[in-house]
Amino acid sequence: MDVPIAANVLGAMGAVSLQVCWSVQLIPQIVINYRRHNAVGLQPTMMMLWAWAGVPLGVYNIVEEFNVALRIQPQILTFLSLVTWIQCFYYEKKWSVTRSLAVVVPVACVMGGIQAALIIALRIAKGKYLQWPLTLMAVLSAALLAAGVLRHYWDIYVHRTVRGISFLFVGIDAAGDLFSLVSVFFQPTLDALGLVIYGTELVLWIGVFACGGYYNFLPWIQKRLRKRKGDLNGSGIVSPACSRSSGHREAPAPEPIALHDLPSSTSVFRTPSGEVDFIRQRSAGSRSGDEHAAGP
């Protein structure tokens, strides 16, 4: 007797949690880009795919006459994705504000026009009992979201580190997918398509977490342990190798790069590849500055 009540409660909690998570998921990423004044490692392709994913998702939710929150959520997803996408060009390509707005505003208008046209067309199709176009919208939105995450896997493979993307953003999005699964699972009729859609993206985000643990967190822990061991040796606990030396102390290591300057995922976990990328960028910037100062 309590099963339907529990199903309704858990389903409602899943739906509400999904809206909260999906509405704010990209805000931490936008804030991190703003604070660092760079978007190194963040994939603009991923953000554009997510922006387009909001178009068919919005069509599906509006035509199916879901609640207001579900209708607004895809619009928020598209808006925040476009903001994050244009940040990549503003910070990395050094575009001006005027140029950035001149590019992103027409793209947003085109997306809005396509969504409006599809809503009208699919409402007519639904009136004629054609369900497959709506199913296509749901599948297309899920495919675009998954493709965006897969694009980041290529960057992880190439650089052997999780760069640019915020783990807080990843965690919020993964939580949204998890709550979505809860909501779908406790619906009166089990939607296998919904389980596949949200389950696929959840697995992809878990993979990003696993890569971050292996490439970012584990080296960070090892470096902390080595530093602690070095501090113990330097505080009077002399190792055998030092006792056999001539008594000369090694020169102190150079000052480490500031954590907030590194193009890592969280500004906390420092990875060798991240440092190399940052040093190369700074060196290239210094050389170009010297050449400019030298003049013809």
Rank of each mutant, 00 (worst) to 15 (best):
N38G: 13
G41F: 02
P44H: 04
T45D: 13
M48Y: 09
W50T: 07
A51I: 07
A51F: 07
A51Q: 06
A51W: 08
A53G: 14
G54P: 06
G54R: 04
L57A: 12
G58D: 05
V59Y: 04
N61M: 12
N61S: 14
I62M: 10
I62S: 13
V63P: 10
E64H: 12
N67D: 15
N67A: 11
L70R: 05
L70E: 04
R71K: 10
I72S: 01
Q73V: 09
Q75C: 08
Q75A: 12
L77D: 09
T78Q: 09
T78V: 04
F79G: 08
L80C: 10
S81G: 07
L82Y: 06
L82G: 09
T84E: 07
I86S: 14
Q87G: 05
Y90P: 02
Y90V: 00
Y90T: 00
K93C: 12
K93L: 08
W95M: 13
S100E: 03
L101A: 12
V104P: 06
V104G: 03
P106R: 05
V107R: 00
V107S: 08
V107N: 05
A108I: 02
C109W: 07
C109E: 03
V110T: 09
V110I: 14
G112M: 08
G112K: 04
G113S: 12
G113V: 07
I114Q: 06
Q115C: 11
I119K: 07
I119V: 15
L122Q: 11
R123V: 02
A125E: 15
K126T: 12
K126H: 13
K126Y: 12
G127P: 11
K128Q: 14
Y129Q: 14
